[in-house]
Nucleic acid binder design. Structure first.
Lengths: 149, 149
DNA sequence: ATGCAAATGCAAACCGTTTGCAAAAACAAT
DNA sequence: ATTGTTTTTGCAAACGGTTTGCATTTGCAT
């Protein structure tokens, strides 16, 4: 499409995987979004770019990408797995219990505490999951009370 | 943990549920264990006490107990849901990635940080999930290196 | 082009969990 | 205890998300 070489191809190549149309499409989708789509959603978006792509391929690709460290799988609440590409930054998630929206955040202080705790228990952390499930608190109680309930 | 009469009956009564044999058995099992069994495991243990109990009942009971706030459901990693009865203390979990063992811990400092972060993002925490996935670090590297094997 | 391994699509299998339904059990009233 | 009413149960079938067997297509090195 353009001139700049996209690096999802590198991702695949580095993982010793073949560069196929389905994989390219899926990686494109992942790199274009900043939300956390599940397999069905990725499939929906992917089919628009190549109608004969299958859900099974989405799942297979997600697995393979996860194993090669290109993406991360999440299991928020109980629903289907949701995915995001991995950036340099590690972050945790705040999930809006009402809307399902996901807000990313980081806290090096929490990370540090985690390491400390694990070590104290005789463990080394492989990975961790911190999810805050919250509800929007009504905007600024310090505003003038006139402005509608 | 003590000698006082078990109050699983109260739990049911308080929740407006009927006291049935299956429910009593399941609550017994839950209150006797300190691990985090999944539905199948609870079923296995329950069948030994009443052979005609069904897995569906286990699931239904777990749901009902969760809704009434008597137990808590966890989804460690990707496997089946695992349950534990709710005590007064809130705690988080460190999961041994090799064995599946679960170690409970608490950290008020982390809790405080979580509240702080959520508030900064304009949210109020409804609940949260902190799971550390770790591997046992080989015991005390500061011992004499002679031992081994 | 050619050949071979890897990847795909399809449909069927899978696993944990839920559900419809008729039979059984709990509780309340007698 | 005997009812009557409602909840709960067991079974088996359905479910939703995910995986898999297999024949076909594709990528890619030759």
């Amino acid at each position: 499409m353009d001139g700049t070489p996209p690096d999802y191809e590198c991702i695949l190549r580095d993982a010793g995987l073949r560069i196929t149309k389905p994989r390219r499409i899926i990686l494109e989708i992942l790199s274009e979004t900043d939300d956390h789509p599940d397999a069905a959603e990725i499939f929906r978006r992917a089919v628009q770019r190549d109608a004969r792509l299958s859900l099974a391929t989405v799942y297979r690709t997600m697995k393979v990408l996860e194993e090669s460290g290109a993406i991360q799988r999440h299991a928020f609440g109980d629903g289907p797995a949701r995915f995001e590409q991995i950036g340099e930054d590690h972050h945790d998630h705040l999930i809006d219990v009402d809307t399902g929206d996901v807000i990313e955040f980081t806290s090096s202080r929490i990370e540090a505490l985690q390491d400390e705790i694990a070590e104290r228990l005789g463990y080394q952390i492989v990975h961790h999951k911190l999810e805050l499930y919250g509800r929007k608190l009504r905007p600024q109680p310090q505003r003038r009370r006139k402005a509608k309930a």
